[in-house]
Amino acid sequence: MALPNIFTQAVADEVINRINQLKPDTTPNWGKMDVAQMLAHCNVTYEMVYENTHPKPNFLMKFILKSFVKRIVTNETPYKHNSQTAPVFLIKGSRDFEKEKRRLIDYINKTSAAGEASFDNKMSLSFGALNKQEWNNMFYKHLDHHLTQFGV
């Protein structure tokens, strides 16, 4: 079953509506992150696309990521609860809820406005070139996983 297309405005709006239901004191159904940390965690995916703040993996790490992790991240199978994450996605310390929420909404809108065609065969920092379906699955599945984690 295909995942909803995050590049369409209707799906982007649905996800943003879910984000807007979060409150600074929303508690998770599983996991260790608080809601502000979760939003910052979700922003990392977009930072890797739009910002130059994360180091590129070395040759060996990129080989491992492409060979073993890419399929898990870009397929349609939902993530399991309490799955391990890459070190760059680990958020330590407190974060500003409103700031992280606004950043995430802005990234989602920017991605939707760019459209799926701009992501077809676009290079991923971790996985190399991804087609538009792989980008969609990665973006949507990750957001859906964490919004479900926080009950929205």
Rank of each mutant, 00 (worst) to 15 (best):
P78W: 13
F63M: 09
K92F: 01
I6A: 03
P78R: 12
L125G: 14
S94E: 09
I16K: 03
N82G: 04
A117Y: 04
Q37E: 08
R102M: 03
V69D: 05
F150N: 06
V49D: 07
H41Q: 07
K122V: 04
P55W: 12
Y46L: 12
Q37R: 09
G128S: 10
Q21S: 06
F119Y: 11
I64H: 03
A36R: 10
R95M: 08
L90P: 00
Y50N: 07
I19N: 08
S94R: 04
D106Y: 04
F119V: 09
I16P: 01
N5I: 12
N17D: 14
K23P: 00
K70M: 08
T8N: 02
N29E: 09
A10H: 02
A86G: 14
H54C: 05
P87G: 15
K141W: 06
A117H: 05
T148Y: 03
D106F: 05
K32T: 03
R102L: 02
K32V: 00
L65Q: 06
M61P: 01
L60T: 12
V15E: 03
L39A: 10
V152S: 01
M38K: 02
Q21Y: 04
D96E: 10
S124V: 09
L60H: 06
N131K: 05
N131G: 05
T77C: 06
A36N: 13
A10D: 12
H41W: 04
G128D: 12
M61D: 05
N43V: 04
N75W: 10
D144Q: 13
W135T: 06
T26G: 09
H81W: 00
W135P: 01
N121S: 14
